[in-house]
Simulated assay, not measured.
Amino acid sequence: MSTAPLRRRRAPRGSGDQLRDEILDAATGLLLETGDAKAVSIRAVAQRVGVTPPSIYLHFADKDALLDAVCVRYFEKLDDEMQAVAAAAGTSPIDVLRAQGLAYVRFALKTPELYRIATMGQGQPGSDVDITLTSSAFVHMRAAVQALIDEGSYPPGDPTTMALELWTAAHGVAALLISRPYLPWGDVEEFAGRVLRAVCCGQMVAGAIAPEDPPRETVAWLREVVHEHNLR
């Protein structure tokens, strides 16, 4: 029996978007199976779809463009999840922000191969991937930060900078859980929740600490606050 791949039937007019989706599905499947972008070639994707390599080039200029498109679609799905958790978290901005951070980590852990390729590779300013990030997951975090500033929970400041700090924490947790799963994290969900809670609440505390305050005085003040809270 022949093992040659089946040739895809000629697509009807107007089905270019469908073929593009099939190409992205095939490239995504190869990435998930191999965990290595180097294993994804135009020829391999074409073979899986059942078309010739020139058909791929009608939609993507080269392999890099194809992989960028895969990552863009990946973060569009993250955008959907970020919006869903925000709706479920209620009206409290701090609950929304923490839920968004946890959703980000969970999403990364679902498909670590894709997350690694999409966020841990060499970035290029203005790439489609970075544009998608700033218009989806990041913008949701920034909106929650702005809400916390508006209600007086977070100190006045640039919401973009604060959101970058929170995003850094979420990405750091996800990246380490993916790259170093053997470390003694304990329950992954609880670990991620503790880190994100500390960072989210830390922004509130930071507003009461002057940059020139000695760390020793800051620790003493925080101890007093904790002591008073425990006496209630």
Rank of each mutant, 00 (worst) to 15 (best):
P211M: 06
V49G: 11
S179Y: 04
D128C: 06
L58C: 07
L177I: 12
F138C: 03
A65G: 08
A86M: 06
S153G: 10
R8N: 05
A27V: 12
A169P: 05
E189W: 12
S15N: 05
G152R: 07
R48W: 03
R73Y: 03
R98G: 02
I42N: 03
V205A: 09
A26K: 00
E224C: 06
V205N: 00
V139D: 03
Q100K: 13
A87C: 08
A89V: 11
T52V: 14
A108K: 08
R194C: 09
S55K: 07
C201A: 12
L196E: 04
V199C: 05
P112H: 10
A27C: 12
D130C: 00
L133S: 08
L183Y: 12
A137K: 03
T132A: 13
P211R: 09
G50Q: 01
A198Y: 07
V188M: 05
S135F: 03
D187I: 12
R73N: 11
M162E: 00
D21A: 14
F138H: 10
G202D: 00
I149N: 01
R8K: 15
L31A: 09
A192M: 09
T28M: 05
W185C: 07
R194Q: 12
G16K: 08
M82K: 11
A44C: 09
S92E: 15
V219C: 09
D79K: 02
I94M: 12
P93I: 08
E113P: 04
D36M: 10
L109M: 13
L6F: 01
A143F: 05
G157K: 07
R8D: 04
Y115K: 06
A4L: 14
V173H: 11
L133K: 13
P125T: 04
E33W: 06
V72D: 02
L32K: 11
K77P: 00
L166G: 02
D25Q: 08
P155A: 15
D95R: 14
Q18H: 07
L114D: 11
E113H: 15
Q146L: 08
A210N: 01
I149D: 00
E190N: 14
N230V: 07
M204V: 13
P184V: 09
E224Y: 08
T218S: 07
D187V: 11
Q124Y: 09
P112D: 12
G186D: 07
R106P: 01
V205R: 03
H140N: 04
R197L: 12
A220R: 13
V129W: 01
V49D: 08
T91C: 03
G90T: 14
R98K: 15
H227Q: 14
P54Q: 05
C71G: 03
G193I: 04
D62T: 09
T52Y: 04
T134C: 03
T160E: 01
M204R: 05
R142H: 02
T91Q: 13
H229N: 09
L166M: 15
P125L: 04
A208L: 05
H59K: 15
D36V: 12
L231S: 08
V129K: 07
L67Q: 00
L109H: 08
